[in-house]
Lab assay of single mutants.
Amino acid sequence: VSEWTEYKTADGKTYYYNNRTWESTWEKPQ
């Protein structure tokens, strides 16, 4: 699942961004 990158927002929430599909999600990808 290497295309997903984990980021943190300014208020400390974690989200995930897909470099291949430009998708972002709050849930941890499978």
Rank of each mutant, 00 (worst) to 15 (best):
V1G: 14
G12D: 04
G12K: 00
S24W: 15
W4G: 01
Y15E: 05
S2Y: 07
D11N: 08
E27T: 09
E23L: 02
Y17I: 15
S2V: 08
Y7P: 00
T9L: 06
A10V: 11
Y16G: 00
R20W: 15
T21S: 07
K8S: 07
V1N: 13
A10S: 10
K8T: 13
S2R: 07
N18E: 04
Y17H: 07
P29I: 05
E23S: 01
W22A: 15
P29N: 06
S2A: 13
G12I: 01
E27V: 10
Y17S: 02
Q30C: 14
W22N: 15
S24L: 14
W4Q: 01
A10I: 12
P29V: 04
Q30N: 13
W4T: 01
P29A: 06
E3C: 11
T14W: 04
N18D: 04
R20F: 15
Y7A: 09
W26L: 09
W22H: 15
N18L: 01
G12S: 00
T14N: 05
T21V: 02
N18V: 02
P29M: 04
S24G: 12
W4A: 00
A10R: 07
V1Y: 15
N19T: 13
G12E: 01
G12N: 06
K28M: 07
Y15W: 11
E3N: 04
W26Y: 13
E6H: 00
K8P: 02
V1L: 13
N18S: 02
G12Y: 00
A10E: 09
N18K: 01
D11S: 07
E6A: 06
K8L: 12
T25H: 06
W4E: 01
K13G: 06
E3A: 08
W4H: 01
K13W: 06
W22D: 15
K13M: 08
Y7V: 11
Y16S: 01
T9E: 04
E3S: 03
V1M: 13
N19I: 11
E6T: 03
K13R: 14
E27A: 05
Y17F: 14
V1R: 12
T5I: 15
Y17V: 15
W26M: 12
S2D: 13
T9A: 07
G12V: 00
G12F: 00
G12L: 00
N19Y: 07
S2T: 09
T14Q: 04
Y15N: 02
W4R: 02
T9K: 03
T5C: 15
N19P: 09
S2P: 13
K28N: 10
A10F: 06
N18R: 01
T14R: 02
E3G: 10
T5G: 07
E27F: 06
S24M: 14
E3M: 05
W26D: 12
T25I: 10
Y17A: 03
K28G: 06
Y7E: 09
Q30V: 14
